[in-house]
């Protein structure tokens, strides 16, 4: 027998759609100078943010995003039942060390750059399942910490191909609640790990596009919806080339989303910022969702949107050993009621 709140193979629906009662974002200078700069709560101009290491700076950004979200909702950390968060660093130290500072029962997540949407989906399930009243979710990334872990020291001179993306420095946090006012989460489609054999870690958009396409198609099939149900279908960090590929793959399956689709990684920077294909990292979809998207849902610009957090599930070790780059995409339908 199929589960009561499941539609089709991958989608869950919520009986009492959990409400996003507040959202906050803290970003670095490049993001602050980008086209979405005004939608973020705080822009930090020092990559160290007054700390000794970039890792500590990233933790401070995540902590501040979470505190800001609590402040906006006008509640205390003791009012939160669970915290779900993750990041890109080994052993997700940003999320773990941030949870150390907040006394909230904590579940650490890793979905690479899809983590924000993984946390939204799981948080909504916890609430609608009756296990929590309020859940704090979030994700972060930092250009310098990601660069030193995945690629080269930051001051090392090298030339990146045009398909490469720029890791967003920023943290986003949101509070989901059973009651309250704000945009609601109506469905979540949990992605499968999809690998069409792309092995170039400098072209992660191409590695993730099949996973994003697979999740979007599954979502539309599971909910029997057409793409025009949504005002916006927005992927996490496919970048300019990945987005094109995803649209193409989806059209091969009979759905045309080209008119209403976008990508957080494309929106966050302007082409003049020389970031090549666009932004990436957990922080990318996190800050764009917690800043720009939620703001535009509340203002009424969008009534229904489908966000798809996209993650490239590689590690420096797997890449060096010649493994391909598997991708994943989690979709969350957010509506204003």
């Amino acid at each position: 027998m199929a589960a009561r709140q499941k539609n089709g193979k991958q989608t869950v629906w919520f009986q009492n759609p959990p409400v996003i009662i507040s959202a906050a974002s803290v970003v670095g200078s490049r993001e602050g100078e980008g086209p979405l700069g005004k939608t973020f709560d705080r822009v930090v101009y020092d990559t160290y943010y007054g700390e000794k290491t970039w890792e500590k700076a990233e933790q401070r950004m995540m902590l501040e995003a979470m505190q800001k979200a609590l402040e906006k909702a006008n509640i205390q950390d003791s009012d939160i039942d669970f915290m779900l968060a993750g990041d890109l660093l080994n052993q997700i130290i940003t999320a773990n060390f941030t949870a150390r500072a907040l006394a909230i029962p904590f579940l650490g997540l890793y979905g690479a750059c899809s983590t924000m949407y993984e946390s939204l989906a799981l948080g909504a399930m916890l609430i609608d399942g009756g296990f929590a009243e309020r859940v704090l979710v979030g994700a972060s990334s930092h250009y310098c910490t990601a660069e030193r872990q995945y690629r080269f020291p930051t001051e090392m001179g090298n030339q990146r191909p045009m398909t490469a993306q720029w890791t967003v420095t920023g943290a986003g946090a949101a509070i989901l609640s059973r009651e309250g006012s704000g945009p609601v989460i109506t469905h979540a489609t949990i992605g499968k790990v999809v690998d069409l054999g792309q092995g170039d870690p400098q072209n992660m958009g191409a590695a993730m596009a099949p996973a994003a396409a697979d999740t979007i198609i599954s979502h539309l099939q599971d909910t029997s919806r057409n793409p025009d149900y949504y005002d916006l279908i927005i992927t996490g960090d496919l970048g300019a080339y990945g987005k094109k590929l995803a649209v193409q793959l989806i059209s091969q399956n009979g759905y045309d989303i080209s008119e209403r689709c976008s990508d957080c990684g494309i929106l966050i920077y302007s082409p003049s910022q020389d970031v090549h294909a666009g932004g990436s990292g957990c922080g990318c979809s996190a800050v764009v969702t917690c800043g720009y998207l939620i703001e535009n849902l509340i203002s009424g610009k969008y009534k229904r949107l489908l966000g798809i957090g996209t993650g490239a599930l590689l590690s420096p070790c797997s890449s060096q050993q010649g493994e391909t780059v598997p991708g994943i995409g989690h979709a969350v339908a957010i509506e204003m009621r």
Binding site: M162, T163, L196, N203, P210, Y241, L245, Q248
Partner: peptide, 12 residues
Amino acid sequence: YYDMVKQSAPKP
């Protein structure tokens, strides 16, 4: 898909 990616990626 390999062919699709090759077509979409910009030439260096």
